[in-house]
């Protein structure tokens, strides 16, 4: 069995997967890089110009701002979403009737279309008819418009992310919590451990891999998401919520400058890889420290 597959024969079985991977990942990535090295006007490929597009976008303050917004948004949304998702998972890790119902309720923002969700939130935050403004009024917080104020708009964008994706984090973390044998928790309780000690010494270490996967998925999602800023804030006011993804969309499909848009896309891709490597690094460092 092992000898039969050890040679070149093994590759035959990998071929379909490799083909699909090439078609869906490497071809688009390659063509994106190819376009990013050319001048492109209105979908017309023009002259090859080395890294001129990269130079142009990286020196453009609007793009630098977009990077800063993306980093701020990704990190803030990641931390809050993970915290809320983890709290929900711990809170709903029982088999009572209420937790079964609540789990379903919590999933609603995640299962409705992103577009619809962001539209709903936009309506809630709007000045004319919004629920949020109503609540502001009630607590005597004045009549400021949420989406017109740069800081409030950014907070609204983060809220959109947390509101939708906490459920996703919860589902993954809940599955992880369920995989911890109940006897381990019972043993720790009998060993004299209080709940926080059990959480720190048993739950978190055993949940490590699931936490990493959850964080990576959330980070990639937040760093690349287009729907939230496009629908909720439109990137405004004054670029306060314009992420790299939204910038790419604008330059590519509103200004029809696919050369620069692809340059930005490649930069975003590198940014993604760096961010995920950083997460892996942190987890590996933590694991090694725990066993030192």
């Amino acid at each position: 069995m092992t000898t039969a597959l050890a040679g070149r024969g093994a590759y035959r079985y990998l071929l379909p997967a490799l083909l699909l991977e090439a078609l869906l990942v490497f071809v688009p990535l390659g063509s994106s890089m190819y376009y990013s090295l050319h001048k492109v006007r209105f979908f017309q490929l023009q002259e090859f110009q080395w890294f001129q597009n990269y130079l142009d976008v990286l020196t453009h303050p609007v793009f630098v701002n977009a990077i800063l917004v993306t980093v701020a948004f990704s990190v803030t949304a990641l931390i809050l979403t993970f915290a809320v998702g983890f709290a929900l998972a711990l809170f709903l890790n029982h088999d009572h009737l209420y937790s079964t119902i609540l789990r379903t309720v919590v999933l609603v923002p995640y299962v409705i279309a992103m577009l619809v969700g962001s539209m709903l939130l936009k309506w809630i935050f709007s000045t004319e008819s919004g629920l949020a403004t109503l609540a502001y009024d009630y607590f005597g917080l004045g009549r400021g418009s949420i989406l017109a104020d740069p800081r409030h708009a950014f907070a609204a964008l983060v809220a959109n992310g947390v509101w939708r994706d906490s459920a996703f984090a919860m589902v993954l973390l809940l599955a992880g919590l369920r995989s911890i044998p109940p006897t381990l928790i019972a043993a720790a309780r009998i060993d004299g451990a209080r709940p926080f000690f059990i959480f720190r010494e048993i739950v978190v270490p055993l949940l490590g891999p699931i936490m990493l996967i959850t964080m990576v998925r959330l980070l990639l999602h937040f760093a690349n998401v287009l729907t939230f800023p496009l629908i909720l804030t439109g990137g405004g006011p004054n670029g306060a919520t314009e992420t790299v993804a939204l910038r790419i969309f604008r330059v590519g499909f509103e200004d029809y400058d696919l050369g620069r848009a692809n340059a930005m896309a490649v930069i975003l891709c590198i940014f993604n890889i760096a961010a995920v490597s950083l997460l892996f690094g942190i987890f590996r460092w933590r694991a090694r420290r725990a066993h030192a």
Partner: peptide, 19 residues
């Protein structure tokens, strides 16, 4: 609570902390 009873228990599955 079990943490305040001054008891110790050996489980059928041993319940050793794997990490």
């Amino acid at each position: 609570g079990p943490d305040r009873r001054d008891i110790a228990m050996v489980f059928q599955s041993y319940a050793l902390y794997p990490h």
